[in-house]
Each structure stands twice: as C-alpha cells, then as structure tokens.
C-alpha cells in the first residue's frame, strides 16, 4: 500500500516536472508544475505531515501558480516561445552546471547521511500535533530566520513597487500632459 502511494505520487511529481520542461505552451507548463506540487503534497500526506500537505496545496498550487498563470494571461504569452533564440549566451551552460551541481550535492548528502538521519519527535495520536510541533519549532528555534524571511519579502515588494513606478515629479518628463 505504501509502495503504491509512493509510486503514484512520484509518477505525478516526475511527470509534472517533465511537463514543465517539455511543454511548448507556458500555460501547459504551469499546469505541469501544479501536478508536481500535488504529487509532493501526496508524499507529505503519506509521511503523516498533513499540515504541510495542506499548506503545499493552498500556498503553492493555490496562490503562486495562479499568479504565474495570471501573469502569463495578462501578458498574452500564448504562443510558444522560440527556443532557438538565446537571450543571454552564457545562460544555458551556467544552467547546466548549476543543475548538475545541485543534483550531485543532494545525492551526496542523501548517501552520506542516510544511516544517521535522526528520527523526529514522535507524533501524538491527536490531530493537531503536526501543527503544534511545527509552530513550536518555528517560533522558538527558528524565529530569527522566520522574521528575517518576512523582512526579505517586504523588501522585495517595496523594491518591485519602486521599480514599476513611473518616473515623475517636477523634473521628470511625463507623457501625455
């Protein structure tokens, strides 16, 4: 039973990931990403991490990919992009190096620590233990990283607003008036 769930979820993850890369239409790629995220959510459920599964669907599938789609629709990038043209010539070799490097690092990390990964605290039978453990960890040991992440998001938002604003003021040349 566990194996069956694992195989099905992994097929979803890998199929979706391949779809993201191979589909020519950006909307189809985004849908492939949704499939991958759902597969990860199924993995979370199989590992008894119900809360993470729910958050995975709500935040990633429900908000982030919807925003991707929103931007794709708004910009009207319906037609498949011409993949022959390369904007930055160094981009592709760099991407290959980083991709292979990440896979290598992750597999080395998994292989070396496979026997020493400590078992987490045992889950209680009650339904809310998941969220309790997670929040206790997040708001005690990790609280600094957590708060700094939120500051990072604010900075990103403020920067985006600043960059997209029209140049204006008494010296700025404004169109149309």
């Amino acid at each position: 039973m566990e194996l069956l769930v694992f195989v099905a979820a992994s097929a979803m993850v890998l199929g979706g990931a391949l779809g993201v890369i191979l589909m020519r239409n950006p909307v189809h790629s985004a849908l492939g990403l949704v499939l991958t995220l759902f597969g990860v959510a199924v993995h979370f459920v199989a590992l008894e991490a119900h809360f993470l599964a729910a958050v995975q669907v709500i935040v990633y599938a429900g908000a982030i990919v919807v925003l991707f789609l929103f931007v794709i629709m708004l910009l009207g990038v319906d037609s498949a992009e011409d993949l022959k043209v390369d904007g930055l010539t160094i981009q592709r070799p760099l991407a290959a190096i980083i991709g292979i490097g990440t896979v290598a690092i992750v597999s080395v990390a998994v292989l070396r620590t496979r026997s020493t990964i400590a078992a987490g605290p045992a889950l209680e039978a009650s339904g809310d233990s998941n969220i309790r453990l997670l929040s206790r960890n997040l708001f005690s040991d990790q609280v600094l990283a957590f708060e700094i992440t939120s500051v990072l998001l604010i900075v990103a938002v403020a920067g985006t607003v600043l960059l997209t604003r029209k140049q204006s003021g008494p010296t700025g040349a404004r169109k149309g008036s």
Partner: peptide, 23 residues
C-alpha cells in the same frame, strides 16, 4: 486532522477551473 484547511485548499483549486475555462 487538517479539517478546515481542506476547504481552503479546495477553494484554491476551484480558481483554476474558472481561470482555465476563460483562457
């Protein structure tokens, strides 16, 4: 155990139905 979060998850999936229908 996640109870009400399932409702939120489903309502966020329902957005796809409307969005993709239009597109």
């Amino acid at each position: 155990p996640i109870g009400i979060l399932l409702v939120l998850a489903m309502s966020s999936i329902a957005v796809y139905g409307i969005m993709l229908a239009g597109w």
